[in-house]
Design a protein around this nucleic acid. Structure first.
Lengths: 227, 227
DNA sequence: CCTACCGATCGGTAGG
DNA sequence: CCTACCGATCGGTAGG
């Protein structure tokens, strides 16, 4: 409104310039999502009131509804942000590998990255998604499903490669579901600071799922490095 | 009341005979627990009101509190019943094996039994436990922990055996946590009636965790039999 | 964004 | 076990 005074009121069609107000609004929105994620993770969705969220974001009780239509829309936003972040990290983790990286090395990278995101170092988004997926309505789940599908699809070429090489006996599709379960479940029991590091955990998962089959040079020693 | 008329009303000290009233009470209690489990599984703990539970058990709104101190005490009862049942089934599954059953066969029996319980055919108790474990207070969790520990401990000799035989590369303790995660997570995605049966699922899990290492005679074909 | 508020629901209890 | 009820909380909204 303040911005458009110069050009009369003709609403410029097309992508509107990002005004300072708009930047502020999306920043406040992100604040809400981040605050909600932290509370949802700690207390659960039902254990967190919209008033809790408002307080954590320095707002009054009714204000979250200026940014979101409903409490569950906030939850959906948490999960969408989480998936966007996880997908970006996944792509980065794969790109960081050598071009001739073996399926085994690719799997290790995927597992390590996935564990990192599940354990929620730095972001509560994915832990919330793992705990509260069933809380969303089917329609809301559908909206996130495409992100989820893309994330999961990235594992399939790697698992197929390992299957053909004989390192993975189970059907790759079913294997993916079991592997995700094993990794996602760490949220329930893994506590950082214990004897097991992220790299140690990754190495254990590798041994469980694809044994130590062929290459015996080195990788075992790498178990506790790097974190 | 009807029963005791013959012997006047002198209340026999010591272990009271299990009167019809008492039997009735514990039956109604069990009804409540069963009804609550079904609702908790379908709608979640927070999504279920004590009024819902009362109605499902053919009672009025306040009556569940005659049997339980609080709503969460009902949840704890659900989990205790679930663990008692699961432990009994586990013992039976192991006893049904030949005395000279290999660790691999024992693992198969444990996995199959665990999947059966997780998928909640006939009882909603364990699915509720998997979903709502975090809902209990630490004190309530502690009360169930010993049952849980015993159930989990039964896997360790088997996993150690496989580790020593070289079929399981990962550390048995960590392997157990990963395996439980993979199996427990099936609650999130497995729907009976699909292409995968309980036995098929069990076989896939076996292949993923302990490969097909030594014995190559038969077991693969067994994948879809029996259910 | 805040203020003030509504309607509904909920866990739990007293008293029989 | 039922009846009747309380106090608290909660998601959401109107109106600015």
């Amino acid at each position: 409104m303040v911005q458009t005074t110069l050009h009369a009121t003709a609403p410029r069609r097309g992508r509107p310039r990002k005004s300072a107000e708009e930047r502020d609004e999306s920043r406040r929105r992100a604040d809400l999502v981040r605050a909600a994620a932290r509370l949802f993770r700690k207390q659960g969705f039902d254990g967190t009131s919209t008033r809790d969220i408002a307080t954590a974001a320095d707002m009054q009780s009714g204000s979250p509804f200026y940014y979101f239509d409903s409490k569950s829309a906030i939850l959906a936003a948490v999960m969408q942000s989480g998936m966007a972040d996880a997908t970006a990290r996944q792509a980065k983790a794969l790109q960081a590998l050598d071009d001739d990286a073996s399926p085994r090395e690719q799997l290790r990278a995927l597992i390590r990255q996935h564990l990192q995101v599940c354990l929620g170092k730095g972001s509560d988004f994915i832990p919330v998604m793992l705990y509260e997926w069933h809380t969303l309505s089917p329609a809301q789940r559908g909206a996130i499903a495409s992100q989820k599908d893309a994330y999961e699809a990235a594992w399939m070429p790697v698992l197929h490669g390992l299957h053909q090489a004989g390192s993975l006996r189970a059907d790759p599709q079913v294997a993916r579901l079991f592997v995700f379960g094993a990794l996602n479940w760490t949220v329930q029991w893994f506590r950082p600071g214990g004897p097991l590091t992220l790299d140690g955990l990754t190495e254990q998962a590798m041994q469980l799922f694809v044994g130590e089959a062929s290459d015996r040079k080195g990788p075992r020693a790498r178990a506790t490095s790097k974190t």
